[in-house]
Amino acid sequence: TFVALYDYESRTETDLSFKKGERLQIVNNTEGDWWLAHSLTTGQTGYIPSNYVAP
């Protein structure tokens, strides 16, 4: 799992909003700078900017 370093507000319907400190499970990280992730807090799935999270 990864932890959010910053808050992120989604800009498209495929993005995932999250708050700093939220735990995220990475589903697919082969898309370059945008990873498909599942929030362990909200249960939602969407794309996140990879530079906003850390292991």
Rank of each mutant, 00 (worst) to 15 (best):
A37S: 03
L24S: 00
S10N: 05
T42K: 04
N51V: 08
L5F: 03
E9G: 05
E22N: 04
V53Q: 02
S17P: 08
Q44W: 08
Q25F: 14
A4W: 02
V53Y: 04
E31A: 14
Q25C: 14
N28H: 11
G21T: 02
E9Q: 12
T12M: 11
Y6V: 07
W34D: 04
A54L: 10
Y8P: 00
E22V: 01
E9V: 14
L40K: 05
E31H: 14
I26L: 07
N29E: 09
Q44D: 08
Y47I: 06
H38F: 15
G46W: 01
P55K: 08
S39Y: 01
Y52M: 13
L16C: 04
E22Q: 05
D33R: 11
L24W: 03
N51R: 13
A54F: 09
T30W: 09
L36K: 05
D7S: 07
E13S: 13
T30N: 11
Y47L: 11
L24I: 07
P49E: 02
N29V: 14
T12F: 14
I48S: 00
T30V: 11
P49V: 02
W34Q: 08
E31D: 15
A54H: 08
Y8M: 03
D15N: 11
V27C: 10
V27P: 05
N28I: 10
T30R: 11
I26C: 06
L36G: 01
T42V: 02
F18D: 00
Y6H: 10
L5R: 05
G46N: 01
I48E: 00
T42D: 03
Y6D: 06
T14P: 05
G46S: 01
Y52P: 02
N28L: 10
K19A: 08
D33Q: 12
Y47C: 07
T45L: 09
I26N: 04
N51I: 10
E13D: 14
D15K: 08
T14M: 12
R11T: 14
Q25H: 11
A37T: 02
W35E: 01
F2H: 08
D15R: 11
W34A: 06
Q44I: 08
E22H: 07
A54E: 13
A54I: 14
E9A: 10
I26D: 01
G21E: 04
S50A: 12
N28E: 11
F18C: 03
L5C: 06
T45N: 07
G32T: 13
Y8T: 01
T45Q: 09
I48T: 01
T42I: 01
R11Q: 14
G46K: 01
K20M: 07
A37L: 02
